[in-house]
Simulated scan of single mutants.
Amino acid sequence: MGTELSNEMSLLFDKLKAELDQQTIQITENITKTVLKVVDEKIQPIIAENERLTREVEKLNKQLQNLDVNARKNNIILHGIPEPNTEKYEDLNALVIKTITDLDVPLENSEINKVQRLGKKMDSEKIRPIMLTTTTIQRKFKFLRTRRKCKKTYILPMTTLRTP
């Protein structure tokens, strides 16, 4: 009689344990679903904001490219203009005005927006090119039409977009 009771208790205990395991699995699944639902609700606005910001970045990149092209449209690159050992901005400005004027295209100081040598000054004999930014695109085209007259200096338009 003692062993029968203990077998029955053992079966009852096993049934109880199985039921508890089943309830634990259901509770875990319910908690997991609830937590995932809450996380999903919290993350949806972040995903929407990320998509909006991605579109905004693409739009700003296009605007930046347009601004870059627009900023370069008045640029001209002059090659072959001698470079002294020491050169100040005023000297470079005067040298560019003289070179362009010698090509029968009168150039006033007020028609120059910016002038500078490109690249790093090296000890070598290599002459760095000069970037000339004109105040109007019409002046740039006048300079470009005189390219054939150049013997030692050559002029190139600078409108291409550089990508980093």
Rank of each mutant, 00 (worst) to 15 (best):
G2F: 05
T3G: 05
E4D: 08
L5K: 09
E8I: 06
L12A: 12
F13Q: 12
L16P: 00
K17S: 09
Q22A: 15
Q23P: 02
Q26C: 06
I31N: 12
T34D: 14
V38I: 14
V38E: 13
V39D: 01
V39K: 07
D40V: 02
K42L: 10
K42N: 08
I47C: 11
E49Q: 10
R52G: 04
V57I: 15
V57M: 09
K62V: 14
L67E: 13
L67C: 06
L67Q: 13
D68H: 12
V69C: 10
N70R: 13
A71G: 11
N74R: 07
I76P: 00
L78M: 01
H79F: 12
I81A: 00
E83I: 00
K88S: 15
D91A: 15
L92I: 08
L95V: 10
V96T: 01
T99H: 01
T99R: 01
T101L: 01
T101K: 03
T101H: 02
T101V: 03
L103Y: 06
L103P: 02
V105D: 01
N109Q: 14
N113R: 11
N113C: 11
V115L: 05
Q116V: 10
D123Y: 11
E125P: 06
I127F: 07
R128I: 01
T134S: 02
I137V: 13
K140H: 00
K142P: 00
L144E: 04
R148T: 13
R148C: 04
R148Y: 09
K151Y: 02
L156G: 03
L161I: 03
R162N: 09
